[in-house]
Design a binder for these strands. Structure first.
Lengths: 94, 94
DNA sequence: TAAATTTGGTTCATACTATAAACTAGTTTA
DNA sequence: TAAACTAGTTTATAGTATGAACCAAATTTA
């Protein structure tokens, strides 16, 4: 029987965020927004969901006088992504 | 920028159905139900969505006296799946 | 320096999606 | 013939995704 696909990762935007964070060590809100093409509102919500789940950590700081939200994937996030990719392989052609 | 993932295919159950149909030439409702572990109601709805989209064809017949619903992937379904898989590759580690 | 615009977000209402419970229609079994 | 089973469909609800509207501060423009 086909394995479950972690619903938290099986969402286009959240998957995109995690995919980017796996590749680059960290990324800020503005970068993620441009890289994904998402609206700020949607991105804000999905980042919060990933944070709640413990898949990413979010740090708020200032770059000069402007606020900055930086995201990093956590070890749990890495594991979850690896599991997701492995499960997904079962749905894809060999 | 990351490509869009066809929302019709980016759904666990519909993806499972298409994935099975790509592999086997045709499959009936009962088989799909067991192979996916889905409830009949959910499967019925998702099959109808795939049919509406033209990704699968659905044929109703009788095996003896019992009704039988058989599904087959269409050429459009094959193309859509191929495109989906290609788009998805951009989200996965190389 | 006051007003307008931009930046970097968050909140929230709504639209969309997935899901299973309840139902239908018929068949088999006891 | 009544109970239980098969093969589904319909439908109500819960969950999810999305962008419009908002906010506060910074920057630009006039």
């Amino acid at each position: 029987m086909l394995p479950e696909l972690d619903p938290l990762l099986h969402s286009q935007l959240r998957l995109a965020v995690i995919s980017i964070l796996i590749g680059s060590d960290e990324a800020d809100f503005v970068f993620l927004r441009k890289a994904t093409g998402a609206t700020a509102g949607n991105l804000s919500v999905q980042i919060e969901k990933l944070r709640e789940a413990g898949y990413i950590s979010v740090e708020k700081s200032f770059r000069g006088k402007m606020p900055r939200t930086t995201c990093q994937i956590t070890p749990e996030g890495v594991t979850a992504f690896e599991n997701y990719v492995e499960a997904l392989q079962n749905y894809l052609p060999k």
